[in-house]
């Protein structure tokens, strides 16, 4: 059991390490991978999301609760709330700026 836990942690660490370095390389030299800056942003965001999922599973043991998965349920609903907060704010504020601040 504990041996298994240890190997989970090591896997999570190595995977996160690789993903971080990969994201870093793309940020520094997007041209190296023949990427436009916008495409590079999409890719590093996906890498971040991937690392987020990996760390949640391998470090935080998400989804390994015994019994009903309450923690997972709260985690996912919070992610929805965060998406609402961030993306709706951007959507609303972009429209406000577009309509109300034509100078900038």
């Amino acid at each position: 059991m504990y041996q298994k836990t240890l190997s989970l942690r090591i896997f999570g660490f190595i995977a996160s390490f690789i993903l971080t370095v990969a994201a870093f390389l793309i940020i520094i030299h997007p041209g190296l991978f023949h990427l436009e800056n916008r495409a590079a942003i999409v890719i590093i965001l996906s890498l971040a999301l991937l690392q987020f999922i990996i760390q949640s599973i391998f470090f935080l043991d998400l989804g390994r609760e015994t019994g009903p998965q309450w923690i997972l349920a709260f985690f996912i609903s919070t992610l929805f709330i965060i998406l609402i907060i961030v993306f709706f704010s951007i959507w609303i504020m972009d429209h406000l700026n577009y309509n109300m601040m034509p100078m900038s």
């Binding site: 959507w91 429209h95 109300m100």
Partner: peptide
């Protein structure tokens, strides 16, 4: 209730679709 907060500031000018 988490998806309606903008109705407090319709007049601020977010535009028709928002």
């Amino acid at each position: 209730s988490y998806l309606v907060w903008l109705h407090h500031f319709f007049t601020m000018g977010a535009g028709a679709d928002v």
